[in-house]
Amino acid sequence: MSYKFDESQPIYLQLIEIFKTNIANGTWQAGEKIDSVRNLALSFAVNPNTVQRALVELENIGLAYSQRTTGRFVTQNQVLITNLKHEMAEHKTRDFVSQMQAIDIEQKEILDLVQRCLNSEDN
């Protein structure tokens, strides 16, 4: 697996986003063991220290925890994961809305657009 990073942004911030997405969508299940730093570094083709930094950040916000001998795990706290999901959703929605506003789309039009997109996906 190879991932295309936005190289004008710090890699570790982007890694944190990827890891959060993995936790939010269940690619990384709650309580599951996280792959070793080296393997993650290999699969993203990035520096192991950068992976380490991102994982430590993940621990700091409580989404992961370390056990000294067995390694690093995804949090088992479902509340945190649900919160994460909502937080990410809200964040992305805000981005979306501000982008719409930037091209002068009105509120009603935005809602219509969203509705239409969802409908077309159902079909």
Partner: peptide
């Protein structure tokens, strides 16, 4: 540090 430089200049190290 590459991440610091990216943050500071807002561009890739290559740029």
């Amino acid at each position: 540090s590459t991440d610091d430089l990216r943050e500071q200049y807002g561009k890739s190290i290559n740029e």
